[in-house]
Computed example of a mutant assay.
Amino acid sequence: MRRTLIVALSTLLAAQAFASAASAQVRSGSGRGGQQQQGEDDAAAAAKKKRDSEWNQPQAPLRQLRNAGPCPYVKVLYDASRYVDFKDAREAANAVAYTGEFQSLSSGCSYKDEEPISVRIEMLMGFGKGPQATGNQHTYRYWVAVTQRNQQVLAKEYFDVPVTFKPGEDRALVTETIEELVIPRAKVTVSGSNFEVLVGFDVTPQMAAFNRDGKRFRVNTAAVTAPGAPAAQ
């Protein structure tokens, strides 16, 4: 299923303005040392410009880049990477109703000049039906969130994925595509590295704890015997 997500403009711009101001404050320096360094840089730049003019040195054109900077980091949140629904909250293989898991994720982005960042995400999800399932249809829910890198959540949106299991089958694969996730930029100097895009299932606290602990069920299978071979004793 293909979707388009435009994150909250006002929240992002406010956060970016704060981040840009903080970065500018760090870069500018303070006191006499910062002013002295700035003066030396200006003098060096003026000398180079004069030298290039006197020698008629041409400026080599820069190779055009696809993006103005790096893409946002896109990943699946570990605590929400799997969906395991237990009947009566009993963690046992025979108590599983429905399951879901992110199988793979790929992403890319594009932006230049003052354009916003456009991110495309493609996710492959695997779904399962357990012994406690009540039917061949189940609607799963996942979310996509944009955060200021390692800080606050700027925007979050939920999506439903209706899954129908074919008769006699207990597994299904679904590809979800976010065609365009648009992240506004407060200034041209704001790059994708300021942001992080997280995805995950809408899970209960018990499901999150189950994932966090790395719990999984081991399926017991009988040994396969080749035709004509004696059975193991």
Rank of each mutant, 00 (worst) to 15 (best):
P227D: 03
P162I: 15
F217H: 11
I183P: 10
Y98M: 09
V182M: 10
R90A: 14
P184Y: 14
S110K: 13
G214C: 06
L105F: 05
Q152P: 00
K112Y: 11
E91N: 10
T147R: 15
G214R: 05
I117T: 04
D170M: 07
V188D: 13
S106A: 09
T221Q: 03
Q103T: 06
A95N: 15
L173E: 06
R90K: 14
T175R: 12
E196N: 01
V146G: 06
M125W: 02
K129E: 09
A222N: 00
Q151S: 15
G100V: 08
F201Q: 09
L105K: 04
Y98F: 15
E176P: 11
R212A: 13
V119D: 10
D202W: 08
Y158N: 11
N94H: 07
A97D: 13
A97Y: 02
S107R: 04
N194R: 10
V182S: 10
E196F: 02
P116S: 01
L124M: 08
V84C: 13
I117F: 04
C109G: 10
T177E: 04
P167R: 12
Q132Y: 04
Y158L: 14
V190L: 03
S191K: 08
P116A: 02
Y158A: 13
M123T: 08
R90Q: 15
P184A: 13
G214M: 03
F217E: 12
V188F: 04
Y142E: 09
E196Y: 03
F127R: 01
S106Y: 00
I178M: 05
S191V: 08
V190S: 07
V84L: 12
T175Y: 04
N150P: 13
T99I: 03
M123N: 05
V161Y: 02
F102W: 07
K87C: 05
M125R: 07
T147F: 05
G200V: 05
S110T: 11
T175A: 13
F102N: 05
H138T: 02
T189F: 09
F210L: 07
T221D: 00
T177P: 12
Y98P: 12
V182F: 06
L173Y: 12
Q152I: 11
N194D: 11
S106H: 02
A172I: 01
V224M: 01
N211F: 03
E115C: 11
T147E: 11
I121H: 11
P227T: 00
K112M: 10
R90W: 14
T139C: 09
G168K: 08
E196I: 03
N220Q: 07
R212H: 08
E179R: 13
E114L: 07
F86V: 15
G126V: 03
